[in-house]
Amino acid sequence: MTVTSLPAKAPAAGAPPGPTRAPRRRRRLGYERRRAAWLMLTPALIHLTWWIGIPVLATFVLAFTHYDVLAGTVTWAGLDNFTEIFADETWNTSILHTVVYTFFTVPVAMALAVVIAVLLNAKMRARAWYRAAFFLPHITATVAIALVWMWMFEPNIGLFNAVLAMFGVNGPAWLSDPDFAMAAVIVVSVWKGVGLKMLIYLAALQSIPPETYEAADLDGASGPRRFWSITLPLLKPATFFVFVVSMIDAFQVFDQVYVLTPDGGPANATTVMTFEIYRTAFSEFRISTACAQSLVLFAFLLVLTVISRRLTGKDDDAR
């Protein structure tokens, strides 16, 4: 990350602020500054410990114990919760659905994003407007906009099937058809996700110096050729970053799944891992089971991040 490599601007602890001051004053000043710093830092540290630190540890602990909500007792369970969840057909299906969802959403959205970013990375009229249009879905509420898609996917009077009918195609029932529900969710997610990825790519593209292309220009390389041989390799750190962020997002997809296909969709066609965790924890109140499921999700994210780091090289700092 960029952060860690930055040099600390402030002098090291105890270093003299100026040659003219007396040592005692200097020591007092250092003390005062440190006291102020701790006072400023403490509220944030308490908040982060309380609402992130403890919960993360608790997830790990609860996943290996039996937690009884009513009695408030915790007993050691070993791997019981994990054997329990993997014996659950619905949970295993939800893993498959999450993988399918991610497999289609992330690469498609990334490919679209990089192409749009390259097209937008030129001086042209209305550039800011195009960028705003592509980015707009990202900043609007998923729930609200998923409802709009639901309306467009409406089988009888919705926009999609009306357009399909113009071409003589008899549209499916989309969200209530087990064969098409996941596809519909993926379409919405690609539409919503393309903007942020485009923006990160655009920022990366703008940091590529124009001289980079000079040699290619001399050789008379074509546009697509320049894209494959120069632009894409230079975008490798950005790609790693976008990939990891997108995957973490995709594996945690919830809002649009919850709204578009309530109760796991037709014949459980769209239950994803997060939906199962939600169902286990907050409608069945099987807390420990839900924590075990959360850890499986966490393990997926961890492994995928490590693998993508291996694939794209170690340095993600340039992004």
Binding site: T4, W50, P55, A58, F251, T274, C291, S294, L297, F298
Partner: peptide
């Protein structure tokens, strides 16, 4: 600072159940 960076990477679902309990 490293710890704070670490908390940035924590996925929602690794903390939400205990957050509810808290």
């Amino acid at each position: 600072f490293m710890a704070i960076l670490g908390t940035m990477m924590i996925p929602t679902y690794t903390k939400i159940v205990p957050q509810y309990l808290i």
